[in-house]
Protein backbone atom coordinates (compact mmCIF):
# COMPACT_ATOMS: atom_id res chain seq x y z
CA UNK A 1 0.00 0.00 0.00
CA UNK A 2 2.23 2.78 1.34
CA UNK A 3 5.11 2.91 -1.08
CA UNK A 4 4.56 5.00 -4.16
CA UNK A 5 0.99 5.78 -3.24
CA UNK A 6 1.35 9.50 -3.74
CA UNK A 7 3.18 9.08 -7.00
CA UNK A 8 0.95 6.53 -8.64
CA UNK A 9 -0.17 8.85 -11.40
CA UNK A 10 3.23 10.35 -12.01
CA UNK A 11 5.36 8.91 -14.80
CA UNK A 12 8.94 9.95 -14.03
CA UNK A 13 10.78 11.52 -16.92
CA UNK A 14 12.81 14.46 -18.05
CA UNK A 15 10.98 15.57 -21.16
CA UNK A 16 10.32 19.22 -22.08
CA UNK A 17 6.77 18.73 -20.80
CA UNK A 18 8.03 17.44 -17.46
CA UNK A 19 10.34 20.40 -17.10
CA UNK A 20 7.69 23.08 -17.64
CA UNK A 21 6.74 24.95 -14.47
CA UNK A 22 3.57 23.48 -12.98
CA UNK A 23 1.49 26.66 -13.13
CA UNK A 24 2.05 26.92 -16.91
CA UNK A 25 0.83 23.38 -17.40
CA UNK A 26 -2.21 23.90 -15.21
CA UNK A 27 -3.26 27.00 -17.10
CA UNK A 28 -2.63 25.29 -20.44
CA UNK A 29 -4.76 22.26 -19.52
CA UNK A 30 -7.54 24.43 -18.14
CA UNK A 31 -7.61 26.59 -21.28
CA UNK A 32 -7.53 23.51 -23.50
CA UNK A 33 -10.46 21.91 -21.67
CA UNK A 34 -12.50 25.11 -21.86
CA UNK A 35 -11.87 25.37 -25.59
CA UNK A 36 -12.89 21.75 -26.11
CA UNK A 37 -16.09 22.31 -24.18
CA UNK A 38 -16.83 25.42 -26.24
CA UNK A 39 -16.62 23.48 -29.51
CA UNK A 40 -19.96 22.65 -31.25
CA UNK A 41 -20.60 18.94 -30.99
CA UNK A 42 -21.35 18.57 -34.70
CA UNK A 43 -17.73 19.32 -35.59
CA UNK A 44 -16.52 15.76 -35.30
CA UNK A 45 -13.31 16.52 -37.17
CA UNK A 46 -12.40 19.21 -34.60
CA UNK A 47 -12.44 16.62 -31.83
CA UNK A 48 -10.21 14.45 -33.95
CA UNK A 49 -7.74 17.32 -34.21
CA UNK A 50 -7.84 17.87 -30.46
CA UNK A 51 -6.99 14.21 -29.99
CA UNK A 52 -4.06 14.62 -32.35
CA UNK A 53 -2.83 17.61 -30.32
CA UNK A 54 -2.95 15.57 -27.12
CA UNK A 55 -1.16 12.71 -28.87
CA UNK A 56 1.62 15.13 -29.81
CA UNK A 57 1.90 16.25 -26.16
CA UNK A 58 1.97 12.64 -24.97
CA UNK A 59 4.67 11.79 -27.49
CA UNK A 60 6.76 14.81 -26.46
CA UNK A 61 6.38 13.87 -22.80
CA UNK A 62 7.18 10.23 -23.63
CA UNK A 63 4.14 9.04 -21.74
CA UNK A 64 3.26 5.61 -23.22
CA UNK A 65 -0.09 5.59 -25.06
CA UNK A 66 -0.99 2.36 -23.32
CA UNK A 67 -0.62 4.01 -19.91
CA UNK A 68 -2.95 6.80 -20.97
CA UNK A 69 -5.42 4.33 -22.47
CA UNK A 70 -5.51 2.30 -19.27
CA UNK A 71 -6.13 5.37 -17.14
CA UNK A 72 -9.05 6.52 -19.27
CA UNK A 73 -10.99 3.74 -17.55
CA UNK A 74 -11.66 6.20 -14.72
CA UNK A 75 -14.28 7.98 -16.83
CA UNK A 76 -16.29 4.83 -17.56
CA UNK A 77 -18.86 5.29 -14.76
CA UNK A 78 -19.52 8.86 -15.86
CA UNK A 79 -19.75 7.97 -19.52
CA UNK A 80 -22.05 5.03 -18.87
CA UNK A 81 -24.35 7.42 -17.08
CA UNK A 82 -24.12 9.88 -19.96
CA UNK A 83 -25.10 7.15 -22.40
CA UNK A 84 -28.08 6.19 -20.33
CA UNK A 85 -29.39 9.60 -19.44
CA UNK A 86 -30.68 10.89 -22.79
CA UNK A 87 -32.60 7.66 -23.37
CA UNK A 88 -34.14 7.60 -19.93
CA UNK A 89 -34.95 11.30 -19.93
CA UNK A 90 -36.49 11.26 -23.39
CA UNK A 91 -38.46 8.10 -22.67
CA UNK A 92 -40.04 9.68 -19.67
CA UNK A 93 -40.81 12.93 -21.37
CA UNK A 94 -42.56 11.67 -24.51
CA UNK A 95 -43.62 8.25 -23.43
CA UNK A 96 -42.51 6.64 -26.72
CA UNK A 97 -39.02 5.74 -27.73
CA UNK A 98 -38.80 7.16 -31.28
CA UNK A 99 -35.84 7.00 -33.65
CA UNK A 100 -35.52 10.79 -33.88
CA UNK A 101 -35.30 11.19 -30.13
CA UNK A 102 -32.70 8.57 -29.59
CA UNK A 103 -30.71 10.21 -32.33
CA UNK A 104 -30.50 13.46 -30.39
CA UNK A 105 -29.73 11.37 -27.37
CA UNK A 106 -26.83 9.87 -29.23
CA UNK A 107 -25.60 13.34 -30.13
CA UNK A 108 -25.72 14.23 -26.45
CA UNK A 109 -23.85 11.09 -25.54
CA UNK A 110 -21.22 11.76 -28.21
CA UNK A 111 -20.88 15.30 -26.90
CA UNK A 112 -20.20 14.13 -23.37
CA UNK A 113 -18.07 11.20 -24.45
CA UNK A 114 -15.79 13.23 -26.74
CA UNK A 115 -15.42 16.24 -24.47
CA UNK A 116 -15.12 14.11 -21.36
CA UNK A 117 -12.47 11.86 -22.84
CA UNK A 118 -10.40 14.79 -24.12
CA UNK A 119 -10.61 16.48 -20.73
CA UNK A 120 -9.66 13.28 -18.94
CA UNK A 121 -6.72 12.63 -21.25
CA UNK A 122 -5.46 16.19 -20.81
CA UNK A 123 -5.65 15.78 -17.02
CA UNK A 124 -3.96 12.38 -17.19
CA UNK A 125 -1.10 13.95 -19.11
CA UNK A 126 -0.84 16.76 -16.57
CA UNK A 127 -0.75 14.30 -13.67
CA UNK A 128 1.71 12.03 -15.47
CA UNK A 129 4.20 14.81 -16.09
CA UNK A 130 3.88 16.78 -12.85
CA UNK A 131 4.64 15.51 -9.37
CA UNK A 132 1.69 16.03 -6.99
CA UNK A 133 3.90 18.21 -4.82
CA UNK A 134 4.75 20.51 -7.73
CA UNK A 135 1.14 20.55 -8.85
CA UNK A 136 0.23 22.07 -5.50
CA UNK A 137 3.03 24.60 -5.74
CA UNK A 138 1.73 25.54 -9.18
CA UNK A 139 -1.77 26.00 -7.87
CA UNK A 140 -0.37 28.15 -5.11
CA UNK A 141 1.50 30.25 -7.65
CA UNK A 142 -1.82 30.82 -9.38
CA UNK A 143 -3.01 32.61 -6.24
CA UNK A 144 -5.07 29.79 -4.81
CA UNK A 145 -5.59 30.67 -1.11
CA UNK A 146 -2.78 29.07 0.90
CA UNK A 147 -5.26 27.53 3.29
CA UNK A 148 -6.61 25.31 0.53
CA UNK A 149 -3.20 24.30 -0.80
CA UNK A 150 -2.07 23.56 2.75
CA UNK A 151 -5.03 21.25 3.25
CA UNK A 152 -4.24 19.50 -0.02
CA UNK A 153 -0.57 19.18 0.96
CA UNK A 154 -1.55 17.51 4.21
CA UNK A 155 -3.89 15.16 2.38
CA UNK A 156 -0.94 14.17 0.23
CA UNK A 157 1.24 13.56 3.28
CA UNK A 158 -1.29 11.85 5.54
CA UNK A 159 -3.31 9.85 3.02
CA UNK A 160 -1.05 6.86 3.55
CA UNK A 161 -0.98 7.25 7.31
CA UNK A 162 -4.78 7.29 7.55
CA UNK A 163 -5.11 4.40 5.09
CA UNK A 164 -2.64 2.38 7.15
CA UNK A 165 -4.63 3.15 10.27
CA UNK A 166 -7.81 2.01 8.56
CA UNK A 167 -6.00 -1.17 7.50
CA UNK A 168 -4.92 -1.88 11.08
CA UNK A 169 -8.47 -1.37 12.34
CA UNK A 170 -9.70 -3.79 9.71
CA UNK A 171 -7.17 -6.41 10.77
CA UNK A 172 -8.09 -5.86 14.42
CA UNK A 173 -11.79 -6.36 13.61
CA UNK A 174 -11.14 -9.46 11.54
CA UNK A 175 -8.85 -10.89 14.24
CA UNK A 176 -11.75 -10.87 16.64
CA UNK A 177 -14.00 -12.70 14.27
CA UNK A 178 -15.81 -9.81 12.60
CA UNK A 179 -17.12 -10.35 9.09
CA UNK A 180 -19.23 -7.89 7.13
CA UNK A 181 -22.09 -10.28 6.40
CA UNK A 182 -25.26 -8.19 6.31
CA UNK A 183 -26.75 -4.80 7.13
CA UNK A 184 -26.03 -5.20 10.81
CA UNK A 185 -22.34 -4.92 9.97
CA UNK A 186 -22.97 -1.31 8.96
CA UNK A 187 -23.14 -0.27 12.60
CA UNK A 188 -19.71 -1.68 13.31
CA UNK A 189 -18.26 -0.15 10.16
CA UNK A 190 -19.82 3.22 10.93
CA UNK A 191 -18.26 3.14 14.38
CA UNK A 192 -14.88 2.30 12.87
CA UNK A 193 -15.17 5.28 10.55
CA UNK A 194 -16.10 7.44 13.51
CA UNK A 195 -13.09 6.22 15.45
CA UNK A 196 -10.87 6.84 12.45
CA UNK A 197 -12.21 10.36 12.19
CA UNK A 198 -11.46 11.02 15.85
CA UNK A 199 -7.96 9.62 15.56
CA UNK A 200 -7.27 11.73 12.50
CA UNK A 201 -8.64 14.78 14.25
CA UNK A 202 -6.39 14.17 17.24
CA UNK A 203 -3.45 13.61 14.94
CA UNK A 204 -4.27 16.92 13.32
CA UNK A 205 -3.99 18.59 16.70
CA UNK A 206 -0.65 16.95 17.41
CA UNK A 207 0.68 17.90 13.99
CA UNK A 208 -0.39 21.47 14.57
CA UNK A 209 1.43 21.44 17.89
CA UNK A 210 4.58 20.19 16.21
CA UNK A 211 4.25 22.90 13.58
CA UNK A 212 3.75 25.68 16.10
CA UNK A 213 6.79 24.40 18.00
CA UNK A 214 8.85 25.02 14.92
CA UNK A 215 7.65 28.55 14.40
CA UNK A 216 4.54 28.05 12.24
CA UNK A 217 2.38 31.17 12.24
CA UNK A 218 -0.33 30.31 9.76
CA UNK A 219 1.73 30.63 6.60
CA UNK A 220 3.86 27.98 4.98
CA UNK A 221 7.32 29.27 4.22
CA UNK A 222 7.86 29.45 0.47
CA UNK A 223 11.15 27.72 -0.17
CA UNK A 224 10.60 26.42 -3.67
CA UNK A 225 10.67 29.10 -6.25
CA UNK A 226 8.84 27.76 -9.25
CA UNK A 227 8.81 31.00 -11.18
CA UNK A 228 8.16 30.69 -14.91
CA UNK A 229 9.91 32.60 -17.67
CA UNK A 230 8.17 34.07 -20.72
CA UNK A 231 9.69 31.31 -22.85
CA UNK A 232 8.15 28.66 -20.64
CA UNK A 233 4.76 30.32 -20.71
CA UNK A 234 4.97 30.49 -24.49
CA UNK A 235 5.92 26.82 -24.73
CA UNK A 236 3.01 25.86 -22.49
CA UNK A 237 0.68 28.08 -24.53
CA UNK A 238 1.34 26.01 -27.67
CA UNK A 239 -1.39 23.51 -26.77
CA UNK A 240 -4.23 25.94 -25.98
CA UNK A 241 -3.26 28.20 -28.93
CA UNK A 242 -3.44 25.33 -31.38
CA UNK A 243 -6.71 24.26 -29.78
CA UNK A 244 -8.05 27.80 -30.09
CA UNK A 245 -7.44 27.70 -33.85
CA UNK A 246 -9.37 24.45 -34.06
CA UNK A 247 -12.24 25.86 -32.00
CA UNK A 248 -12.40 28.95 -34.17
CA UNK A 249 -12.43 26.85 -37.31
CA UNK A 250 -15.15 24.61 -35.90
CA UNK A 251 -17.40 27.62 -35.30
CA UNK A 252 -16.74 29.17 -38.70
CA UNK A 253 -16.94 26.04 -40.83
CA UNK A 254 -20.36 24.60 -40.20
Amino acid sequence: MGAGHAHRLYVPGDSPVHRLPPQCKIVAVLAFVLLVVATPREGIWAFGLYAVLLAVVAATARVPFLTVARRIVIEVPFVAFAFLMPFVANGEKIGVLGLRLSESGLWGAWNILAKGTLGVVASILLAATTEPRLLLLGIERLRMPQLITQIATFMLRYGDVVTAELGRMKVARASRGFEARDVRATRVLAKSIGALFLRSYERGERVHLAMVSRGYDGRMPVTHDVGASAVQWTAAAALPLAAALVTLAAWMVP
Binding site: A6, P132, R133, T153, F154, L156, R157, Y158, V161, R203, R206, V207, L209, A210, M211, S213, R214, G215, Y216, D217, P221, T223, H224
Partner: peptide, 28 residues
Protein backbone atom coordinates in the same frame (compact mmCIF):
# COMPACT_ATOMS: atom_id res chain seq x y z
CA UNK B 1 13.72 24.93 22.34
CA UNK B 2 13.65 22.06 19.88
CA UNK B 3 10.93 19.60 20.82
CA UNK B 4 10.98 16.16 19.21
CA UNK B 5 7.52 14.70 19.66
CA UNK B 6 6.87 11.07 20.31
CA UNK B 7 5.22 10.09 17.03
CA UNK B 8 7.42 11.05 14.08
CA UNK B 9 4.34 11.02 11.86
CA UNK B 10 3.14 14.04 13.82
CA UNK B 11 6.48 15.74 13.55
CA UNK B 12 7.09 15.12 9.86
CA UNK B 13 4.25 16.75 7.98
CA UNK B 14 5.86 18.00 4.79
CA UNK B 15 5.89 16.04 1.51
CA UNK B 16 9.66 15.43 1.55
CA UNK B 17 12.30 15.07 4.23
CA UNK B 18 14.22 18.05 2.87
CA UNK B 19 11.21 20.36 3.05
CA UNK B 20 10.39 19.13 6.51
CA UNK B 21 13.84 19.77 7.89
CA UNK B 22 13.76 23.15 6.17
CA UNK B 23 10.39 24.08 7.66
CA UNK B 24 11.75 25.39 10.97
CA UNK B 25 14.67 27.43 9.62
CA UNK B 26 12.46 28.78 6.81
CA UNK B 27 10.03 30.01 9.45
CA UNK B 28 12.99 31.81 10.98
Amino acid sequence: VGIVFQDPDDQLFMPTVREDVGFGPANL
